[in-house]
């Protein structure tokens, strides 16, 4: 099993999920950049605390090299008129590339960038539907329903169809 670095929006939603602990069936540990932790308020920090205390999650300090690379990615996506890439998710991409981690994000931009940038082609970018699919397999439809109830998140019909779910 491997490590994944989590973006703010993914973490905020996943931590609300009733079966959030099952993510450790897919990843041994979750890396949380301090830049991501700083975006979270009291509730999110309290939810994240058990993972940090049990060392299943760990913090990644601000590192100048990662910040410079994140800025390069943000500038690139802007100059090419690509989907908007926010600084925390750009930082996650930079960390993932250097450390060989997967990226957890519910935004489309990092997935898109990893597909078109040659030097990011080895970075695996997964969203919550990908993770639910890996955990639940054939029981995905029920898990999707529960995830929607817990988080207010909706999966696109097109994507659900690719997993054999007709909503």
């Amino acid at each position: 099993m491997s490590t994944a670095v989590a973006d703010t929006c993914f973490l905020v939603h996943w931590l609300r999920f009733r079966e959030r602990e099952r993510i450790f069936e897919v990843f041994e540990s979750i890396a949380v950049p301090v830049i991501v932790l700083d975006e979270m308020g009291a509730r999110g920090r309290v939810m994240l605390a058990p993972w940090l205390a049990s060392r299943r999650a760990f913090l990644i300090p601000r590192i100048n090299d990662h910040e410079v690379e994140a800025l390069r990615l943000v500038e690139f996506s802007r100059s090419q008129r690509l989907p908007t890439l926010d600084p925390p998710e750009a930082y996650c991409l930079a960390v993932a590339k250097r450390r060989g981690y997967a990226v957890l994000t519910d935004n489309k931009a990092p997935k898109y960038l990893a597909q078109i940038l040659k030097d990011y082609s080895t970075v695996k970018v997964l969203d919550s539907l990908d993770i639910l699919s890996l955990i639940y397999g054939d029981d995905l439809a029920e898990a999707v329903k529960a995830y929607k109830e817990d988080t207010g998140l909706v999966f696109s019909k097109t994507r659900l169809k690719t997993y054999g779910i007709n909503s």
């Binding site: 905020v12 939603h13 975006e39 979270m40 308020g41 009291a42 509730r43 207010g152």
Partner: peptide, 10 residues
């Protein structure tokens, strides 16, 4: 607001 607090309003 922090992302999780804004998300509650969302």
């Amino acid at each position: 607001l922090p992302v999780d607090e804004f998300d509650e309003i969302r």
